[in-house]
Design a protein around this nucleic acid. Structure first.
Lengths: 306, 306
DNA sequence: TTTTGTCTTTTCATTCTACAAAAAGCAGTG
DNA sequence: CACTGCTTTTTGTAGAATGAAAAGACAAAA
């Protein structure tokens, strides 16, 4: 893809690639198109030192997304918003770790994995080094998708199993998510709301058959998490994030259904209510929205092979 | 402590010690005093193979808690319930990993730790090997107490900081915990309820000045988690467990206060309501209980040194 | 004064080997 | 047949060395 222009540029490290994406998001979120970027500013915003920021900027320069602006004056954004979005998208696909995560998720859903498994099993099955596998397993453990066995091996976590049943999850969310909207500290983040609304409209604009379920999932997850974040109470936010993580793991089991459009409209109605500061009504709509979604036929998960 | 009687017995491994404790709990929970234990039965119940179970049983035999019952007929319980409880208690104190966890927690509360830190910092400060430190840090990360920095190092998680503020946490719990009691699948576990009640009575029986805060914390945490478990919806249970974990980390900041007795009475009132299957009233009492607790003056946490 | 360039120090990821311990299978006893 | 004793196989962990890369400090330029 991008191996032509650069002279003898060493490959960016994982962190550097990640920072490149984060810088792109930083530009987007702060509307810095054609604005200035300084190493120190970015380093502080992203909580790292200047060293990896510089490498990331050079990498972005190689992609013609930023360009050095004159002598000792930092970098200037040269890419369009569209190009930035593309970078963000592409990064998600080319991340090896993410790829392994998704392969495991897909196999789980398709009954390709046993309930319990050992690290060696997985290394053989997926042909990856222990290090990477371990990182992925640790991530899954943080997300409560798997757990360690007391002795050797791992197993898919009970929480995941009950996520499959669909029911308890929605009941939990029907308690938590409307309540988040009613928190006294709730403040709608206007910029975020506008972005989300655009994303929903974009989905509605796609012709019926051509919609990517993955894309809808991301927009949907971000909607629910974003609202919880606005509550100003991190515990609500955390709870929603955790639900999202478990749902993402199972997302391969999802099928396109006719509720997507309705769902988008319900989301937008909730946003509208919140923009009018009618939080009671927004909470009611949210409860209703989740209730309707819960009635969908549950996804097909063959579950672990036994 | 226990190095006199055994002949040339090799020290039990970590898992074996853990299993020994779990076997003790298994005996207690299933009322197997003077009952029979088989290797296979225990192995299946605890989700491990027979090998570590045998080692754990031999270890317990060395402590005179179980004894081989005749030829090839497994083991027999010989210890009193009290002795079992003592084992469980002691195990918690002598676990090296737990000890490190608590030291870090205590230092955090007493402003002995910076907001961000590196693994090497910690290895120096606590004089432990990387392996153990890493395990403890991973555990803290799972519990959402700390997070990795994008580059090097770790930092105490935002969630922990807001736990300190006390407020959001209680508001979250006031939403989740009463709702758990109202779940359709809620079924009170009678055996657990009886045990919990006894534990509360034991606390009330202790003379005012002599109460261990740690002990109260454990009983309190188990009360809330146990009820959530009875809801039959694992997501409620998980949410409460997570709150408990964060609270435990900060528990060094707690001071003995006069509300302990009241708190116990409130707990018991909730149990009573549930035993009469009056779940609405139990939920109301729970909400009230949390509301009162929230009004307590927040604990003193100096927070990280800056 | 702010920002980048350069350099040094520190930190952590990785890899390897050896080893302890858990799982799994088989044999034998009541 | 149910259970334990014993052996073999497999697994994961500990420890040490290496190297890549992030942090941090200082100098220099705008």
């Amino acid at each position: 893809m991008n191996d032509a222009p650069a002279p003898t540029r060493s490959e960016p490290s994982k962190l550097q690639r990640k920072l490149a994406v984060q810088i792109a998001e930083f530009i987007r979120d702060n509307d810095l198109h054609d604005g200035q970027l300084t190493e120190l500013g970015l380093a502080e915003a992203l909580n790292v030192s200047r060293t990896p920021v510089r490498a990331a900027l050079e990498y972005l320069a190689g992609l013609n997304i930023v360009a050095p602006s004159g002598q000792r004056r930092g970098f200037r954004v040269t890419a369009t918003p569209a190009a930035l979005a593309e970078l963000t998208q592409e990064a998600a696909y080319t991340d090896e770790e993410e790829a392994l995560y998704l392969r495991i998720a897909a196999d789980y859903v398709r009954a390709g994995l046993p309930e319990q498994f050992s690290e060696a099993d997985m290394m053989r099955q997926y042909g990856v080094a222990r290090g990477m596998l371990l990182r992925v397993l640790q991530r899954m453990a943080r997300e409560r998708v798997i757990e360690r066995n007391p002795g050797y091996g791992w197993r898919f976590a009970p929480l995941l199993r009950s996520m499959e049943s669909h029911d308890g999850s929605y009941r939990f969310r029907m308690v938590v998510e409307p309540a988040a909207l009613l928190e006294p500290s709730f403040t709608l983040d206007g910029a975020w709301a506008a972005r989300t609304r655009r994303a929903h409209e974009a989905i509605l604009a796609v012709p019926a058959g051509k919609l990517s379920m993955v894309r809808f999932f991301e927009v949907n997850a971000d909607f629910h998490a974003g609202l919880a974040a606005c509550s100003g109470n991190p515990f609500f936010h955390e709870a929603v994030l955790q639900q999202n993580q478990l749902r993402r793991f199972l997302s391969y089991a999802w099928e396109l259904d006719e509720r997507i459009a309705e769902s988008c409209h319900e989301h937008m109605a909730i946003l509208t209510a919140l923009e009018k500061d009618d939080r009671d009504w927004a909470a009611t709509l949210m409860r209703r929205h989740l209730d309707l979604a819960a009635r969908e036929k549950p996804p097909v998960i063959r579950g672990p092979a036994t």
